[in-house]
């Protein structure tokens, strides 16, 4: 069973103080699957995404990626948090793309991409540069290798950020509202790169408001609200015939 599952969340809960952000979330993502997480802001979808690579700790429940418990070691039903070094080791295999790109502004596009392979994987520099240039070509920015992020448009920055995450050869990619900070005219170029990635069989979890992308590319859609999964299923089905009242009212506002 775990052979085909990339992500397995089992009753994951999380609070910030007295505010329960995640209330017993259970879901699975198969290898090669593209899942879209949608929902109003404050629904816990970004927090859940950040738990998957242990940027946020969970309070209870199990979260496995590729069969391995993330951020914790289980000893007799108690989860003991891993040391930062061990958690970092797990994060290598999970790529993440942020809403506000978070490129390193003091490094060129290419330097951004090769930084982690060089420092974390100790890859030889020539090899890292070669791979970095391939990735830049893949996202259509081969001519921008020496540009600093400040010289790139939002869409270009986000494509570099995707290439940076791919440089670690992740088995899972997390996208946290990758197009929300972009001018409308720049959204398409980023979605195109993501579609290509999905076509190549990358396992992806995408927090997004782009229902068109969800309909066209996603294999499954999860609607979250108030820290719980309200509804999930085939995206075309959920978007066309939402069963839950809450889903209906949300979709009527965004579609």
């Amino acid at each position: 069973m775990t052979d085909t599952l990339m992500v397995e969340a089992d009753r994951v809960s999380k609070s910030f103080g007295s505010n329960k952000v995640l209330k017993s979330i259970s879901l699975t993502v198969k290898r090669g699957e593209v899942m879209c997480l949608v929902g109003p802001s404050g629904s816990g979808k970004s927090t859940f995404l950040r738990c998957i690579n242990h940027l946020e700790s969970v309070d209870a429940g199990r979260l496995r990626v590729d069969g391995e418990l993330v951020g914790y070691r289980e000893k007799g039903h108690i989860l003991h948090e891993l040391k930062p070094r061990e958690a970092a080791l797990q994060r290598r295999d999970i790529g993440m793309v942020f809403q506000r790109f978070n490129l390193f502004p003091h490094m060129t596009a290419l330097e951004n991409i090769i930084e982690a392979p060089l420092r974390v994987k100790r890859m030889p520099k020539a090899k890292a540069i070669e791979r970095g240039m391939d990735l830049l070509a893949q996202v259509g920015l081969a001519d921008k290798a020496d540009s600093y992020p400040a010289h790139l448009s939002g869409g270009q920055q986000q494509r570099v950020a995707i290439a940076r995450a791919l440089a670690m050869d992740p088995k899972l990619m997390l996208f946290d509202e990758p197009t929300s900070a972009l001018d409308p005219e720049l959204v398409g170029e980023v979605l195109d790169v993501m579609k290509q990635l999905a076509k190549e069989g990358m396992t992806m979890i995408v927090v997004t408001h782009e229902m068109g992308f969800a309909r066209e590319v996603a294999d499954s859609l999860v609607f979250m609200d108030g820290g719980v999964v309200v509804e999930s299923g085939d995206p075309r089905e959920v978007l066309a015939n939402p069963k839950h009242e809450r889903t209906k009212s949300f979709l009527s506002k965004v579609l």
Binding site: A88, R92, H106, E115
Partner: peptide, 27 residues
């Protein structure tokens, strides 16, 4: 330095020391 920088470095699997010396301190 924007908190997102530390997050991005951490998400790439960089250690605390690498994050500080390569990303946070230079900025």
């Amino acid at each position: 330095v924007d908190h997102g920088q530390e997050e991005a470095a951490t998400a790439l699997g960089m250690s605390w020391f690498q994050t500080m010396s390569r990303v946070i301190i230079p900025q």
